[in-house]
Design a protein around this nucleic acid. Structure first.
Lengths: 181, 181
DNA sequence: TAGCCTTATGCAACAAGTTGCATTTGATTG
DNA sequence: CAATCAAATGCAACTTGTTGCATAAGGCTA
């Protein structure tokens, strides 16, 4: 259900094609949602079928046509409903933690590779977040409340990522110490 | 694929029935994995079909029979393979963040209810973590490396939860300030 | 000039997760 | 005494997400 809601929100802010939304998922919404292009196109089509979206086909010379979607009245109503009702807790799923419960069978080199790879990935994520911050929230003090809210989400994303990075550093350090002895 | 791996790990540590595993998911593995009983029973049966698990039916007088599962050789091999190969990054999905992008349409009272409900839920989670810590990791200094690894996961779980709680408090506070003016 | 990248869309098959419903027995609670 | 809870299992239908494959045209690179 949530993918629908995310699409309603981003298309309400600004109409766009499936491809546009994909770009938003890679840029300004990177810490909010990710989905494959296949999933996007299918869901957009279904939402049109359910009357939540309408689209205009924009023929482009020398390029495939773009289908630009925007909300219908039913789409706006559906969004309002979704906002009003509380979210259900998402189930915990930490496959990395599972590996920690099999510490002895987990080969030391695989372990170190896994953690350093995650470290690199999280560091990259921080770079993405910094880019978003520069582009959209250059001057936090001057933001309106509605602009400030998305900025808050970015702040939390950064903090959570840093919490992860700090922990990984500690675990790697402890592991190194033990192998020096 | 990860549910399989989690089942392999927990059954390798100690054989058990679907119901047992469900209890572990509620207690010692609360910060690692969650799944419904339906999903569990189905997956266990499939894994038996795939030769990863074997089970003995324990007839209990006055109670439904218990099927106690344990790893086969193929199960052990599958686990080793899974441990050796790196995890793929899990896609970002933060429906709450999405709501923040629709701040203006999000009714102020729904907003506050949502955040305080989440706050309560996270606080409860911390209590669960504290219970796990007392039961399994009473004396961290005396732990072997293999026992210490799961303890690390619990530490990160706690930190992440506290990061969330701190952020929610800030957001609520800012919201309150604005409405006092 | 062959091969890849980007723009732009999509179908089909499959895997994973959710929701609803169902069964059996004993113990507890009102 | 009736209702509910806990132990213990499961099927069926549905929704959501993944993977593989396909198309079409222009631009860039070796």
């Amino acid at each position: 259900m949530s993918l629908r809601a995310v699409l309603l929100i981003t298309l309400q802010r600004e109409p766009g094609s499936g491809y546009d939304i994909l770009q938003r998922f890679k840029a300004g919404l990177a810490h909010v949602w990710q989905a494959s292009h296949q999933q996007l196109y299918r869901e957009l089509d279904r939402m049109r079928g359910d009357g939540l979206l309408a689209c205009e086909t924009m023929p482009q010379s020398e390029r495939p046509d773009r289908k630009v979607y925007h909300l219908t009245d039913a789409g706006h109503r559906a969004l309002d409903e979704w906002l009003a009702e509380p979210l259900t807790a998402s189930p915990v799923r930490q496959p990395l933690f599972a590996k920690f419960f099999a510490w002895e069978q987990w080969p030391a080199d695989a372990r170190r590779d896994e953690l350093t790879a995650l470290q690199a990935q999280l560091a990259k994520r921080l770079v993405v977040y910094a880019t978003i911050e520069k582009q959209w929230f250059a001057d936090p003090a001057s933001l309106t409340p509605a602009e400030r809210a998305p900025w808050h989400t970015l702040r939390l994303g950064k903090r959570l990522t840093k919490t992860w990075l700090g922990w990984i550093e500690e675990v790697l350090e402890e592991d190194r110490e033990r192998h020096v002895d």
